[in-house]
């Protein structure tokens, strides 16, 4: 108790009034940087690195020109991009104290739900002996892992951006950054991947995105404290 008294306010350090004077004097010199721009620049930079890594490691899918005219190519691109939009909406909210990310969650659930629906329709209408390949594809051994690998630069950039913000729920904020990174990575990976089955994409792209989200949730409390 004796020691507590020594640290009582005003005995050392700076008086609150002096601090307020100093902080107020600090603002005209330093314009407020836009939080949204930091987010946009960071996630874009991470995505560019990830896309370059994809081109260097995997290259475009061999049947690229033909694939452009297939529905599965575009669905495979739009599904993760939709999740990325939802993730960015959540990131923007969760980085601000006192804000809820309900709209981001709503969009995310709608996108994932639509994709699951499309995949189910394809499964139900398929002949029995095709179901196995619709679910497991032919790239199962590396699909999810590569999505997570390509997500790492985006995750790093996203965490950097989130650190400039003020998240108050660190695990949740980390998870949102992770899901966004995983979703952007999956849409980049989609250009290299020649799987066409929607159930495969839903399951294993979904797994890559979800696991990157888990990684973000684990890192959040460590990286995002302020």
């Amino acid at each position: 108790m004796r020691d507590r008294v020594r640290f009582a306010a005003g005995q050392e350090g700076i008086s609150t009034d002096a601090l307020i004077d100093a902080l107020a004097g600090d603002i005209s010199s330093a314009p407020v940087p836009s939080v949204r721009r930091t987010l946009a620049v960071s996630f874009a930079a991470g995505s560019v690195i990830s896309a370059l890594a994809m081109l260097a490691l995997l290259g475009l899918r061999p049947d690229m020109a033909a694939a452009l005219f297939t529905a599965s190519f575009w669905i495979k691109l739009i599904f993760p991009l939709g999740l990325a939009v939802a993730g960015l909406m959540a990131v923007d909210r969760l980085g601000r104290p006192g804000a809820e990310a309900d709209r981001g969650y709503g969009v995310g659930i709608a996108v994932a739900g639509s994709m699951a629906l499309l995949a189910s329709v394809q499964l139900i209408t398929a002949p029995r002996d095709a179901i196995r390949s619709l679910l497991l594809g032919h790239t199962l051994d590396h699909c999810t892992a590569l999505i997570m690998l390509l997500a790492l630069p985006i995750l790093a950039a996203g965490m950097y951006a989130m650190r400039q913000m003020a998240p108050t729920r660190l695990r949740l904020a980390g998870a949102a950054v992770g899901v966004t990174a995983g979703a952007l990575s999956a849409s980049i990976y989609a250009i290299a991947c020649n799987e066409t089955a929607l159930p495969f994409v839903t399951l294993w792209y979904g797994a890559g995105i979800a696991l990157t989200g888990v990684l973000g949730a684990l890192l959040g409390p460590r990286l995002l404290r302020w």
Binding site: R4, A8, I14, T16, L23, V32, S34, V35, R96, G98
Partner: peptide, 29 residues
């Protein structure tokens, strides 16, 4: 005895994170 320190900490946090305030939303929250 640390309450005033906490006041100062919080003021600094508000200052440094002021860009995260969205003018469309209530300041109190």
């Amino acid at each position: 005895a640390n309450a005033e320190d906490l006041v100062q900490d919080t003021l600094i946090a508000i200052h440094e994170r002021r860009a995260t305030y969205d003018p469309q939303r209530p300041f109190a929250a």
